[in-house]
Design a binder for these strands. Sequence first.
RNA 1: GGAAGAGUGCCCGAGUGGCUAAAGGGGGCGGACUGUAAAUCCGCUGGCGUACGCCUACGUUGGUUCGAAUCCAACCUCUUCCA
Length: 426
Amino acid sequence: MTQQTESRPVGTFRSRFMQEAEARGFVFQCTDAAALDAAMLAGPVCGYIGFDPTADSLHVGSATQIMLLRLLQKHGHRPVALLGGGTAKIGDPSFREEARSLMSEDTIATNIAGIERSLRQMMTFGDGPSDAILANNADWLDKLSYIDLLREVGVHFSVNRMLSFDSVRSRLEREQGLTFLEFNYSILQSYDFRELNRRYGVTLQMGGSDQWGNIVSGIDLVRRTDSKQVFGLTAPLLTTASGAKMGKSAKGAVWLSADKLPVFEYWQFWRNTEDADVGRFLKLFTDLPVEECDRLGAFEGADINEAKKILATEATALCHGRAAAEEAAETARRVFVSGQSAASLPTRTLPRADLQTGFPAFRLFAEAGLASSNGEARRLIRGGGARLNDAQITDEGQVISLADAVDGALKLSSGRKHHILVRPEG
RNA sequence: GGAAGAGUGCCCGAGUGGCUAAAGGGGGCGGACUGUAAAUCCGCUGGCGUACGCCUACGUUGGUUCGAAUCCAACCUCUUCCA
């Protein structure tokens, strides 16, 4: 059972990091919170979070973790972002429906490169006392010897105990199978913690609540082999007020990389936050003062839309820069408030010659990426959800060409919220 | 190594020879209502073609049959029990 390990009354922290982390809703579980609090008061603490390179970009689900690292940095502590280049070769079995397919070295390398970009955008890296450090566990895991690992680390792990962790047990109970390979993930993650402690003096591992078991294992390992006390802190698993998991949107995952999700769409994701989540998300995903977040989140009715715009712009600014965020906000204002087109809507270019000839409406929607297949585009049009320059398209075979362009672009819309500009190439 | 069971569409899950592109639910998309929210209601939800249509799909490969997701064989994977 993942138990709360501390029984400290709320609001008793003395270190600024812990106070703010708690006030903003980042703290779910913490090992020996009082001692961690004291350590933070005594001086800079080095804390890390691991990111698995399972895709070439992180998504909003990971944003919480990055915000935690930022918070650490903000209060003079030192954040370490650990990329799981080594562990990615195994796959974390925690709460997974089934085994993850194994990734090739190449895939892992490109994924790491993509993730690194987002991390660098959101934190300051360098050699200063509170500059962030980027590490890759492939640096030490790759050359581990199996026998040595078993002798030196394996002896400290109780299988009985590992089986009792929720993360493992849920897999077993579902009769879904758990290979020995995956079963080792937790051991390697523990090894990471110890290695980071030895290399950089890392004494805190943070993560999502699904990482509790792995984190505690690491703490035990460090205590047993190096006789040092290190800490763990988990953030709550984020769901929206209506119970859905965070991070899904029209187009699937909400990626942090602009290559995978246009900034405008990212802004829109936050803009469409449920009313009840606004205050909570402001605290988690922006740098605005807590009191301001509470004030904005308390708006009622339509007024809260203003708070959502602030949330969207602030959250987007952290991830894509202030200028891009303002631009997305302005684009949204034009599209939704004035009902105009805007030059900074996501744009798709198609060969000029093809556009001159024209496409049947359904094909154009598919080509532009507003529908994933011709069939889907047809359904969209039949359902009355497709528009060209804000006029509903009724005939799926209607030929649309450059002649229909306004200001050199065709504005296509799927529903009220998804707009794209199609421009000729060259 | 032996025995029993399971593998269905994005997910869960029904289906045990034709009426099955495959019930139902979830998710997703669109519409209505709103506040670019939630809740609710309605429609759509494999691909290709304007279309009568064609193609792909029920773990894999073969077979039986006019016809198979459904029957048979082998194989693969997983689960449980035994050694």
